[in-house]
Amino acid sequence: MNLISPVLETHNLNIYYGDFRAVTDVNIQIPRHKITAIIGPSGCGKSTLLRAFNRMNELVPNTHIEGEIIFEGQNLYGRDIDPVEVRYRIGMVFQKPNPFPKSIYENVAWAARIHGYRGNLDELVESSLTKAALWDEVKDILKQSALSLSGGQQQRLCIARAIAVQPEVILMDEPASALDPIATLKIEELMQSLKKDYTIVIVTHNMQQAARASDYTSMMMLAENTRSGTVIEFEETNTLFTRPKDKRTEDYVTGRFG
């Protein structure tokens, strides 16, 4: 696949934890305003790759990359690039909902305020919560602790918090794996409405979720005779789950892997 203007693009990307190479030679392009799923067996480097997209891996000591990640034409790991700035423009939503122990309002307003947002905070909170499909449920309880919300609501609050700083990309690491099926479907529907404004990359263990919710799917697997993960197939989701090209993808999606 060769996109005209991908948001993110990796060139021979290798990611190391100390001497250990966790991800090997990844060359992919993340399409703009689409949902890209990363699937693959446990330990194949899905989350490591995802976290490289907003330099989150650097929070782990001795992590480094080789190759490059290009974000909107710029080298994401360039000398003059501030990783904190990167994390605003490329937000992350985690597996376990992690709201701050503050009010619902503050959870959304906080990051924007730190980031020097000069607009009307009330409006920002409302629009972010609306985009995250949570406004109607919380508009009368904005001063309540975020921890009083259900798991599914907390996760949508975390999405609202990510949106509030107006990112271009939202990374999601197993965003629904701790949620029940109804809350899961809400997150998936939310992703569909968010892709109008944002590019979404999601790591999921749930193949059905990747099939249901994504436009493109990146299949990762350990490279032959190594403990290092790589992308073996990157395709439109409809194709990857009905007519995969790689035998290993076929085995994985049909449950015959291993």
């Binding site: 193949m207 789950f241 007519r243 049909t254």
Partner: peptide, 9 residues
Amino acid sequence: QQPMARDLR
């Protein structure tokens, strides 16, 4: 069973 790929075909 939520089959995929060849199984689904």
